[in-house]
Design a protein around this nucleic acid. Structure first.
Lengths: 120, 120
DNA sequence: GACACTATATCCATGACGGATATAGCCTGC
DNA sequence: GCAGGCTATATCCGTCATGGATATAGTGTC
């Protein structure tokens, strides 16, 4: 299902886990485990990333420059030294937007196919 | 990324190829190769299914009862005996609708994440 | 003391994919 | 005449993303 590239080796469609991680980080910087909880919360439990999926996705995304690790950390009393915090990059934002547009046009396609009788 | 089932072993998210095939068959009964061309046409070339993906997807979908092979064929002068024609089942329609709703709510999620600046 | 939660990371099996390959008849251009 | 492309179906292979199990380890709860 080869769509287009978005410059730099990241092709669409984006792996679903990658898209969810980018959406979570678009809101604010987070560490891995917090992303896990945030995705579950935002999707009302519909999407629960497994730990394997999460950490391997983050590694891939670091290599592709979609996210970067931040040195900034919260005040020590709110922190946990084990955590690793991540921030979305401009490239990550661009890729996420491209994926969102792709999904939106896919929904449009479904609508014009006579599917989608009512609003979600 | 385990979402819910839609009764009978077919889980969401649907494999993208499966969703495209269902959308194509929602319009009218088609044979395999015609689905291939229709998907490419409807997505304006953005999605081109490989032959392996197409025929294995159809086999899986037959097993899951999402599509069925039809005995009805066009007039012999418009036909090709090699073709195998497929029709979407009520279950296939239900599954496709569920997937379309899932995608629509994913787009909504992206919108509320501050992504998606303009319409696709 | 057992269990659950936080937090990261790796391993394994499964599943979906693209592309190559196979087979084969048809048509077009050179 | 024959090379190449199109129609049409089907199988094989390597790759990639996934869920879940497992590992490690500190904290808190029952």
């Amino acid at each position: 299902m080869q769509d287009g590239d978005v410059s730099g080796g990241t092709a669409l469609p984006l792996p679903p886990a990658t898209f969810h991680i980018l959406m979570s980080l678009a809101e604010e910087d987070r560490h891995g485990y917090a992303i896990l909880q945030d995705v579950a919360r935002r999707t009302r439990g519909a999407v629960k990333l497994g730990p394997g999926t999460l950490y391997r996705s983050i590694q891939r995304m670091l290599e592709q420059g979609l996210v970067e690790e931040t040195r900034e950390r919260p005040a020590p009393e709110d922190d946990d030294e084990r955590r690793r915090y991540y921030r979305i990059t401009p490239r990550g934002t661009a890729v996420a937007r491209a994926e969102a547009r792709r999904l939106a046009s896919l929904v449009e396609l479904a609508r014009s196919s006579g599917l989608v009788p009512r609003k979600a």
